[in-house]
Design a protein around this nucleic acid. Structure first.
Lengths: 157, 157
DNA sequence: CCTCTTATTGAAAACGATTTCCACTATCAA
DNA sequence: TTGATAGTGGAAATCGTTTTCAATAAGAGG
């Protein structure tokens, strides 16, 4: 089982134990898969990848673990309109760059972008504060996505 | 069949005919239902409402019609995390106020907000332009949602 | 290192929203 | 009015996800 950078157990061990969750082989394997890709994996994608190394890890466990990780805030779940949830690690030890998505409504291609994030962040935090006060919400997260046609699909439609 | 304000056929007749689509009873009924509510209806919600007046309109047709309307840009499809698509009229004759959503991750309550929309619009159009140029996308739409706990759910978690 | 509690697991079955199939119907251009 | 065909409805199929339940293994305590 991969052990991160080799300096002690992976950083998320504490997060698990602190919540009373056990650190298991499937959980480590799934987190490992997510941490080694920048793609937007579906549950099945994760299952297939994990399955290559640990053939006895079941799809059910993948679903359960992903749900757990989302609930813990370690993973984000996205919907790109293709009727299957996509998962992405929220942050690693060094933190993954905050980004949003640009989705082609024709072919489903998804582009991560980090442009304008700083300006967005400023406006979003201001909006968040205003909304929280007005609607009495404790806001913990936000989602921004742009939709359109990518260059390859532009002409075809 | 409702005829809008009584001054000629509903404004969307032209949109249909212009695309070579026929104006049918189910389509009119579904658009009518969507235009009379500000709620976020699921396909089944629409079906139930339409069914009361036109019992012979089937669920299949509701799904097909909603898909068509989304493709035509008359309706928006949203995902609030409860595993069922939600639909909302994009705009009526007088135009529905542009808004975004605030979603409670515990009870699923959805609040529409129109605050900060002007500031958002400015940043978004700038972002849109930049992204379009950099990634060669023809952007047609965007999605912004905030997630958190509503006041009723705040204490319970 | 062993033992016990119970969180976690895997396989199969269930679930539920959405889609497909296909024969029948209704729109609307001619 | 009529004909070509887009549109329809009901049943069955699809498929991502969840539930069930007996078996397994993490890790606290001895």
């Amino acid at each position: 089982m991969p052990r991160g950078n080799g300096f002690g157990p992976p950083w998320w061990h504490g997060r698990f134990r602190g919540c009373g969750y056990r650190v298991t082989v499937p959980r480590q394997a799934i987190l490992d898969v997510l941490s080694r890709t920048s793609k937007h994996l579906s549950a099945e994608d994760v299952y297939i990848t994990v399955h290559k190394i640990y053939p006895n890890v079941g799809l059910t466990t993948v679903y359960r673990t992903l749900e757990l990780l989302v609930e813990m805030g370690l993973v984000f779940r996205f919907d790109f309109g293709d009727n299957r949830a996509r998962y992405e690690l929220a942050m690693g030890p060094k933190g993954i760059m905050h980004h949003h998505h640009l989705v082609c409504t024709n072919c489903g291609r998804v582009v991560d972008y980090t442009d304008f994030i700083d300006e967005e962040k400023e406006l979003l935090s201001r909006t968040e504060e205003g909304l929280a006060k007005k609607y009495h919400f404790t806001i913990s997260n936000h989602l921004i996505q742009f939709y359109g046609l990518c260059d390859k699909c532009e002409g075809k439609k």
